[in-house]
Each structure stands twice: as C-alpha cells, then as structure tokens.
Design a protein around this nucleic acid. Structure first.
Lengths: 245, 245
DNA sequence: AGCGGAATTTGATCCGTGTCAAGTACTGAC
DNA sequence: GTCAGTACTTGACACGGATCAAATTCCGCT
C-alpha cells in the first residue's frame, strides 16, 4: 500500500479544506449538505503525521477526538490477557478510527501505523456541539457506527463459516474492493501488513496464510511476490470469499 | 430461559411506563436524566407480543423503529448465499435489536423469537425528533452502538483465538453474566436455543458443542440436562472463555 | 401414560490446520 | 554490493474438530 501513500498522500500533501481533499467522495463530509460540511470543516484539525510503526491511539485512553485516516494505513488490535495480539482490522484512507470509543468514552483498542500515515482529527467536544445543531451530521455519525457494526458482524460470520482459503480470499477481495472505492487499482497493490498480522486477523497461523496464498498462486488466481499482489481472477477470489461481484 | 419469560414477563404483564418496568435499571432510559426519560417514554409503544418461532424483523425491511426486547429471547441471524444460517447472537430482555439498521436505513439481519416474546418499539421518526433536542438520548444511542460494536469485535477475537471448548465456555459465561445483570440466577438457567443455533453462532458443529458440554459435565463444571444448565464452576468457565470474574 | 418426531449424545474415521523445523527470499544499513 | 536480520515459504507430522452414522433422550401431542 505504498501506492496509497503516494497517490492520496504525496499528491495532496497539505489540504486546507475538505473541499479540496482527494478523499472527498469517501470521507465523513461526503453525505452532508453543503452548509453542514462547511461547519464540520471548521472543526477539523488537519495535517497530522506519524511515521511507520507509531501508535495512533491506545486502549484505555479517553476518547478525545474522532480520527480519520488521510493517507497510509494502520492496524487495529488489542492485546489479550495472555499477551497475544488480536488484530481487529486494517484502516485505509477515508476510514474513521476508534468508533468503539462511543461505548464508554475511551478507546478500547490500539491503533498503530503500518506505514507513514497522515490523519485528521475532530475533537469530541466540538463534535458534540456540532451534532446538537446539524441533523445531517448526526445521521452520518450513526450511519458510520451502523456500518462498522454491520461490517464487524459480516466478518464474524465469515470467520465462523469459512476455512483458511475462504478467509484469505475474503481478506484479499475485501481489500481489493476497498482500494477500488478509493480510486486505486484493485488488482495491483502492496500489502502494508505482515503475514502474521493477516493471520492474527483471520484466526489462522502465518504458515496457513502463506500456504493459502501459495495455492491461489498455483491456481493462477494471483501473482505474489513478497507483499506485492497482482489479482488475476478477482471473480474467483470474491466468490470463494463470499463477497458479491 | 423460560425463567426470563416468567420473571420479567408474566410478573409485569402490562407496563404502562418505563418507570414501573422491571427492566428499568438495564434498559434504554436507565442513563437518561429524568426529563429526557419522560420525553422518551411518551414515544415508546409498549405491550407488543409475539409467539415462539415468529419473526420480529427481516433483513432488507426499512428500519421503521428501534426495538427493545422486554421479555423472552430471540436469535439474530442472516442467511448466506448458499442458504446457510449465520447466527450473529441472541437477544435478551433489555437489549436493543436492529442497530445495524443505522448503516443504510434498513435492517440487515433477521431476528426471530426463540420463545414467546414481548417488546417495545420506538418509531424512528420520533426517535430522530427526540435526538434533536435531547443530548442525553443522543449520547445514549451512540453509547448503545459503540457497545454493540465493541461487543461484536470482542466476540470476533474470541472466535479467532479459541478452540471449541473455549468458545462454548465463553458463550456460557457470557450468557450467565448477562442473566445476572437482569437479576436472574447466573448459575441455573434454561437455554432457549438449540445446540445447532449455538454451533452456528460459534462456528462449530452441533456435535462439537455437545461434546464440549459433555467434557464440562465430566469435569464437574456443569450439570446439563437437555437445555437446563447448572453452572457449578463459573470461575473455571469464565477463565477458559477469556472473560473476567 | 404412551406414542412419534425431533433434538441430543456418543462413536468411528478422515481431513484441515496447527506445530515444529529448515530453508529461502527479501529489505534496509553500511 | 554485501551483509545481517527479518519475513516468508515449504515440508513432515500430530491433533482437534468435521463428517457420517447410530443410539438415546426429550418433548409435545393424543
């Protein structure tokens, strides 16, 4: 996903307004009426950066703001009692982070960057004020949460039902479709996460992930060279992964 | 969970206000200031009933209202392309249903009753009006969604990490704790769902669920007679299921 | 109380993944 | 360019859970 950084980050290094942002069609204000979008814009803190491997937020920390990734990618995870990492998912540009924080006012999982990352921040105090008078924003935040919930449940179902190949296919097809929505090539991309991260996300071991990729390669569905992926048969992957299209 | 029906349903067959409701300490208005709770109460449609095996709501249906179960229990599930049932979870009294609907304005999973069920309804139109002027209610709905999201992710992690015994232990310990919060015995209860439902919820087969219960029984952690469960070692179950206490 | 169908338990076998162990390829630093 | 460290691939084997099959228990019904 160096591509992500290049196309969406470097191409528009300093955005002053959401109007000029490359993520406009995907990001939070996308569904807001003009006046509400302007009001929200005024509350957004832009242009924040982190290097690769940094921590964006930590479990237990008070939910001071809503975060939206602008460029780069990140890993959401939590650490279990016995020290193991549960990877909840991966965050792409235009996606909000830390929504579970609404439950108790503090974040409940760690988010750390997989590559250099830039993001926007909307302080919670301002967000609450805005929600008071902007019905569209209220609906949008609820929509965001609903979507996250739906997505989480869909994924849980996938985990419960599929075998290793199905899970890896789902992961790739899903990533591919999310990249496509961001105007990036759905069939040529570079994974920003390790096999171990993918494995911990899918409830598998890294060896099994590697083997699944191996079989896809042998069957001519993929070309794999380390973290560079070329999807040759997106249809086959989507079908096996239980995704439409 | 006939117990649930008896204690919370039959004991208070017709509630006219949330103030008198047995679920008061758990339900939606619990965290609202007095005036907001009163305003919400006025919008609630109470006293609706369904027999066992009925459908409360269906995927694809417009999200006309927020539902809260009053007594009885239900199963949330969706049907995959190949006709299999994915069980997302089970709903107990005081729990809201259909929150994923906020994503796109219509429900995305089926909910059907496991035993006779009564519920309250808050029409979406009224809910939106109320959210306009009640900041506490706004926060409460966000809290509800955040909680559902957090819960869903925790469960996904559990699925990804645990083996069959761990998952069944988690299921039992979680159910036990939720019953306790409702003032019911956490150690003596009757399951309202079949082994097959539990299995589809946990990503296992019904035989494996049965065997896991068998081993718990043999180890003296449980007494099992069909759907009646006595928990003898709640601590052991919770520990194996990755839950505190 | 007794009957019939469904739910559950129990048993035997097989396959998919986890585990352990090398070996190979990649990446970044000098 | 080379080197060291890390990430990834590949192989052999063991084990947990799926699958198929049968026996048993439970529950609603007459």
């Amino acid at each position: 996903m160096a591509t992500i950084r290049q196309l969406l980050g470097a191409a528009a290094p300093v955005c002053v307004s959401c109007r000029d942002c490359a993520l406009k069609p995907i990001c939070l204000p996308a569904h807001l009426p003009g006046d509400e979008a302007r009001a929200l814009e005024a509350a957004v803190e832009r242009g924040r950066h982190l290097p690769a491997g940094a921590t964006l937020l930590r479990a237990g920390e008070p939910m001071s703001a809503l975060f939206v990734v602008r460029s780069g990618s990140a890993k959401r995870y939590s650490v279990t009692l016995d020290g193991a990492e549960q990877v909840h998912g991966f965050v792409l540009p235009g996606e909000a982070v830390g929504l579970e924080g609404f439950a108790g006012g503090h974040f409940t999982c760690e988010v750390s960057t997989l590559e250099p990352l830039s993001y926007c921040r909307v302080p919670m105090s301002k967000l609450e004020q805005l929600m008071e008078r902007l019905p569209g924003l209220r609906r949008e935040i609820l929509r965001l949460l609903g979507q996250a919930l739906e997505e989480s449940q869909r994924l849980r179902g996938e985990l419960a039902q599929s075998d290793a190949r199905g899970r890896v296919a789902h992961f790739l097809a899903d990533l591919s479709q999310r990249l496509a929505r961001r105007g990036l090539s759905p069939n040529e991309f570079r994974l920003s996460m390790s096999r171990a991260d993918i494995a911990r996300h899918l409830g598998l071991t890294l060896e099994t992930v590697s083997r699944a990729l191996g079989t896809f390669k042998r069957e001519g569905w993929l070309r794999v060279r380390a973290r560079d992926i070329s999807v040759l048969r997106p249809d086959a992957l989507a079908a096996l992964g239980g995704l439409p299209a």
